[in-house]
Amino acid sequence: MIADLMISGPEDLFRRVPFAQFLNLRMEMAGNELTTVMPFAPHLIGNPLLPALHGGTIGAFLELTATAQLSVFETFEQIPKPVNVSVQYLRSGKPIDTYARARINRVGRTIANVEAWAWQELREQPIATLQAHFLIG
């Protein structure tokens, strides 16, 4: 599909992953600190009555944020593949922009452990957190 498979940095990752495009994910780099953004869009709604974002959009956003964080320091021939992810939903996602950051706890030879958290209005009040293991290399 795409001949050059090397992923060089988080911007490149979000640009080349169709599903990141589908969610219209954005990012801001401040030095080496990455903050990702999932701009609100009506198709992200999971509960039209509240309304609230679909939990699946938040999970996907956190997973892609964790992947992007991995690509800040490492260059991968293949996109890191999630082995398992665990998402805790803390607050319902309002129909506004969502932000996320991730921290890498360990990068081993085959597995990386990453955690990520998402917030909306107040960073001190995360709406969801994620722990994930990725297969790398």
Binding site: M1, V17, P18, F19, G55, A60, V85
Partner: peptide, 24 residues
């Protein structure tokens, strides 16, 4: 669907798309 792809090198669907479906 191609816009749900998570790895353009293989055409495999994004984990995030599977996540949403499992959640729902």
């Amino acid at each position: 669907r191609e816009d749900l792809i998570g790895d353009p090198a293989t055409g495999v669907i994004a984990g995030g798309a599977v996540t949403a479906l499992l959640d729902h």
